[in-house]
């Protein structure tokens, strides 16, 4: 009963605060409102779990998850090492690099481009994570197979985006470079690639999420006894949901942090682009 009242009070008060914040001055409200909303959801979750005595095996309270994070820091660190540093990072680098090189090759050869591009966009509509069991069979249980899945998953988005980016140069600019007598490598390095950077960063950001998903799902198919995907599936089966939530919180933090880091690099590298000029 008291839990119900608490939730009701939280909901009413929270909506009031949110409405007030949303009407406030733009700079404050743009930051404060989503933060307040997040805090409200966490508070309601905590009250709900405690007030109704929700069993731990259904939904642990945020405080229990925080405790699990604090308790299992070494485990989380080991999983981070295995999944992010060993599987995701090399796979992402190789996949994006190969996609970019392939895009440049397609850009040089119109025949290849007409042949590969339709297949590439087909491939990006396919559930590529499904290759995980095959990669586990080929490359074994350890990080190599996860990195391989990540390579395949990140290749096609980069290919398609980079081709579109290399294509985005205006005819005027190309003509200008031709009138300078620029060679192909010169026009590629000085005009086409810089111009494609926003597209390439788009793919890099998209791929950072895809890579995490690929590595985690590939771990569901077999792994040494470490890794985020392994931890999530085994602890879920053992009903240690607070640890599962801790891993999910870490996955979310890693995903958002890499996205934010890439966005910062993008800003620094493509500062000249209209979308960053005020």
């Amino acid at each position: 009963m008291s839990a119900g009242l608490g939730l009701l009070a939280l909901a009413l008060g929270g909506v009031l605060v949110l409405v007030l914040l949303a009407r406030g001055p733009d700079r404050v409200s743009a930051v404060a409102t989503p933060l307040a909303f997040g805090a409200l959801v966490l508070a309601a979750w905590e009250v709900f779990c405690r007030g109704y005595g929700v069993p731990r095996i259904l939904l642990p309270a945020p405080s229990a998850i925080a405790a699990a994070i604090a308790r299992s820091l070494p485990v989380l660190a080991a999983d981070f090492m295995q999944t992010v540093l060993r599987s995701v990072l090399p796979g992402w680098l190789i996949g994006c690099g190969a996609g970019l090189l392939a895009a440049i090759a397609l850009d040089r050869s119109p025949f290849l481009r007409r042949g590969v591009l339709p297949l590439g966009s087909l491939a990006s509509a396919m559930p590529i994570v499904g290759i995980a069991p095959i990669m586990v069979m080929w490359f074994g249980f350890d990080w190599q197979s996860k990195a391989a899945v990540v390579v395949v998953m990140t290749f096609f988005p980069m290919l398609i985006n980079a081709v579109a980016g290399l294509d985005s140069t205006g005819a005027m600019e190309r003509d200008l470079l031709r009138s300078y007598g620029a060679s192909y490598p010169q026009s590629l390095l000085k005009l086409r690639l810089p111009n494609a950077l926003p597209f390439i960063f788009n793919a890099l950001k998209l791929n950072s999420t895809l890579a995490l998903i690929g590595a985690i799902v590939a771990e569901f198919f077999g792994t040494p006894i470490v890794g985020m995907g392994f931890r999530i599936s085994t602890e879920a089966a053992r009903m240690n949901l607070d640890v599962v939530w801790a891993e999910i919180a870490m996955a979310a933090a890693v995903g958002s942090a890499s996205f934010a880091a890439l966005a910062l690099v993008e800003r620094a590298v493509t500062f000249w682009h209209p979308s960053f000029r005020s």
Binding site: S29, V244, A251
Partner: peptide, 28 residues
């Protein structure tokens, strides 16, 4: 109010490997 409260979270959620929650949802 909805826009201000939710938009950031919706965008952030796209950077999060949501697929990771699948086993837990199924088990719970």
């Amino acid at each position: 109010t909805l826009e201000r409260s939710l938009m950031l979270w919706i965008i952030t959620s796209q950077t999060v490997p949501v697929l990771a929650i699948a086993p837990m949802v199924v088990v719970v």
